[in-house]
Amino acid sequence: MNKIKVVVLKEWAEVFRNKLVLFSVAFLPLVLLALPFIMVIIMNNVPLEEATVDDIPEALLGTMCGGMSEADCALVYMLNLFTIMLMILPVMIPVTIAAYSIVGEKTSRTLEPLLATPITTSELLTAKAVAAVLPAVVATFLSFVIYSIGLRFMVNETIYNAALGPIWWFAIIVVAPLLSLFSVCLAIIVSSRVTDPRVAEQMSGIVILPIILIIVGQSLGIILIEARFLFLVAVITAVADAILLYFAVQLFQRERILTQWK
């Protein structure tokens, strides 16, 4: 346990001195929070045009906005999209941290002395994963808390309840960590093959694609984000986690890391 802790703290000390990593961990949440707040302020002050309401897919109207005015419904719908966008955090942050930490160790050749110590490869892998996942989960959770507190003051209770129901807490507490694990495993696998952290980050960055697809799906009315859908996402992510974790562990063997990670 102590060794895992030592490595995790080492990872943070190294990686957070990198500006690009700091940017993704600190700046990205700020942007994703600022956008919905700005939008709410605008929508509270500018009268809504009919067109916006017409844009909302028929399928969503009924489930989402039972008994709401059309303007309120439009707002709930927009907020929903922003909440999904917050899920970019648990995906992007671990990718960035893991890519920089693993490729960094490869290029500065720090893996060999590290592997010569009595740390086990599973301790090392765990430490790498925790170092990448923990900041992501914390950043996501904090962002969501700030988001919901902010909204509480900016919109009325009906809208608040419709926009931030319990399914979103499920998303943040269960789905976000699962997504983080997925992205860190992918980053480990990709990083073992490349020597430039930016390439690793971009390649692993494709994990945000599904989230973008969900956002698009929702805005086109193809997907309806409700409890059953989120639960399905959680199950799929968990299965994918198990598969990717298996490959990451396979790749993360002493001899492999030393002789094949070039």
């Binding site: 060794k3 030592v6 000390a13 190294e14 990198n18 720090t110 590290l114 740390i119």
Partner: peptide
Amino acid sequence: PGMYDRLSAHRNLSIYAEL
């Protein structure tokens, strides 16, 4: 040598002492 360049000499050694 494979040192963590961003960390101090002292920090580098204490990490390894722990490990």
